[in-house]
Design a protein around this nucleic acid. Structure first.
Lengths: 160, 160
DNA sequence: CAGATTGTTCAAAATTTAATGAACAAAGTG
DNA sequence: CACTTTGTTCATTAAATTTTGAACAATCTG
């Protein structure tokens, strides 16, 4: 079968499947990005399904996720009404998209939670209050530092 | 029941359960660290089981994971042969432990994989080789930048 | 507009991951 | 040394996540 994955393709896909795991993304998302990353030609859903041997549903959903943070670019192919995609290869864009779509929402939830914890602290009995207050302050310090690191890390990724 | 979790405890535990999720650690690990983090007193396995209403097995395994990267400190309690623990509250230590135990191994596997990909590249036909070579080089660039960021991020966490 | 093509959605199935608890090992105690 | 206490391991169970594929919607084509 001419659509089988080469050793090299498998190896590269494996790398991205691993990365997907770290980022808590489905395996299929890693596979999709991986195959697009080493394909010089844009691919459509059908190409991707056949190459990766995954279902149409997975392919469609996986591409949706990849588009959501700009890891994949739609490409117009003249005379073909199927949607084609290439991998976005500029790291800064992908990371920025990922941070905005997947990370920042989480961070904001963290802030709300923090506010609620501080309210609850007031109701605490005097004995424990001191210790707990210290811990909450510490936790808030961690949050601040994490937030400060984020923009720096983004800046760390220089243009290619 | 006097061992039920207070609202504040639940809220703090929720924060750490969330963090555990981001780090791909089991929920129970987040719960364990969370309850220890807001407890002024060291706790033993039995305390933890009862407080969190999780099994002995989960508690034992969870503590094992937390110890593996130094997120938890054993505490000697005179006249009690059970093992007691407190939460390590110095962020730098926890992050350093986590990076050494959970992150670096992955990064090294990544390096091996990269080497294999470069071997396979040689067998590629001339036409595609050029494009693929560019992609692999790019991927390697990403890896380098990620590796460079790690020590910086560690340094970013100043002593408390 | 009837039929074909393409992409999306979502309930059900398959897979993966985590939690449970009983069996076991280790170490203390009298 | 028999008995208790404590912690770990691991096969099984339970829960969470991912994938599948058929139904559907949207769009094109002649």
């Amino acid at each position: 079968m001419h659509s089988a994955l080469s050793e090299l393709e498998k190896e590269v896909i494996d790398i991205f499947v691993r990365i997907a795991g770290v980022l808590s993304l489905p395996r299929s998302v890693g596979e999709l990005y991986g195959i697009l990353f080493i394909s010089s030609e844009p691919m459509c859903i059908d190409d991707l399904m056949r190459k990766l041997k995954i279902s149409k549903g997975s392919t469609s959903q996986g591409l949706k996720i990849l588009r959501s943070f700009g890891a994949v670019n739609p490409v117009y192919m003249a005379g073909d009404r199927r949607d084609f995609f290439t991998a976005e290869a500029e790291l800064r864009r992908i990371v920025a998209g990922f941070v905005n779509e997947q990370v920042r929402p989480q961070v904001n939830i963290g802030k709300d939670r923090m506010a609620r914890v501080k309210e609850l602290l007031e109701q605490e009995e005097a004995g424990r209050k001191e210790f707990i207050a210290e811990r909450i302050e510490r936790l808030q310090g961690w949050q601040k530092r994490a937030n400060a690191l984020l923009p720096f890390a983004l800046n760390f990724i220089k243009p290619d």
